[in-house]
Design a protein around this nucleic acid. Structure first.
Lengths: 154, 154
DNA sequence: TGATATAGTTGCGGGGTGCAAGCAAGTATT
DNA sequence: AATACTTGCTTGCACCCCGCAACTATATCA
């Protein structure tokens, strides 16, 4: 049996961790996926479905459905994009903002409980490394996006 | 809007990262969940379904199905547990071991590519922190003691 | 032996996702 | 302007992953 490489341990840790997080993010009485959309939307401001989908690395159709669900329960609203009639700009309703705030509070509390014994330094370090990891993996599966405005020439 | 708390960033990073990992673990032509079972099994040696399920924090039924699937494609085999006729001991077949090795190789290569610029120290640090995080969250949702849960409902 | 517990499987339902097809609205070509 | 292509989004469909509840078969205990 091969001694597990550090990369493997990393991956296994991620997978198990995620299952935890997934179960936990059902908080606020909102499905994890919907909560994720709400969160993303709360961070990025009024955007189109396509942009949201791209940001979350999900299929447009998936996000479309989530958005519809959130709209139906009054957490998200659509406004017509003045520049393009087929597009819609998504934003949180006041209720949505409130719900998001609650959700984040709960989540924060949970993480704080979990990492109660940690030093601020450790927390920051983990966040930093994780963020770096996200970018690293992103650039693996999207060819690095060196200059994201190479549209000017032709 | 208040600058996102580090805990939030942490969580978001986890979620996005996981989607990446999930997609990546489809490698080797094996469904991610099956690959996970294969991996776990490869690490823990011959075990029962229930033990595997517990280790992976999944329902026994879920693991049971995955194991059946793996058995059907010849990657896993069952042997009767001499101590208990209802139980079965799961182990990898030679083919399964080979498949796992391939899978781990691919995964390792991917992680190595992604973290090519990292120092070994950073990698180790992340793995360590992540592991700690897993344990921290585990002790939040399983209060360290297996028994004193709420088992008496009616 | 009969009551209860345990290992595992199966039926069922539900959530999450992607792909392909379709619809509506812009853009370009002639 | 009319036609053809493109783009933003939604819908139909299929598939995976999962947990709960019910069931079978064995094990254990009174």
């Amino acid at each position: 049996m091969p001694a597990a490489a550090p990369e493997d341990e990393l991956h296994r840790a991620f997978v198990r961790l995620f299952r935890r997080l997934k179960r936990m993010s059902t908080m606020g009485g909102l499905d994890p996926a919907l909560a994720a959309v709400l969160h993303e939307l709360g961070c990025t401001g009024p955007v189109r479905v396509s942009v949201l989908a791209d940001a979350m690395r999900l299929d447009q159709s998936t996000v479309s459905r989530h958005v519809s669900a959130l709209e139906q329960v009054g957490l998200v609203q659509r406004s017509d994009d003045p520049d393009d009639r087929r597009a819609a700009l998504l934003s949180l309703t006041p209720t949505g903002r409130g719900r998001l705030a609650t959700l984040l509070d709960e989540r924060r509390a949970l993480f704080r409980t979990a990492t109660a014994e940690w030093s601020d330094d450790d927390r920051a370090q983990l966040a930093g490394l994780l963020d770096r990891m996200v970018r690293a993996l992103d650039s693996v599966d999207r060819p690095t996006i060196p200059h994201h405005e190479m549209l000017e020439s032709s």
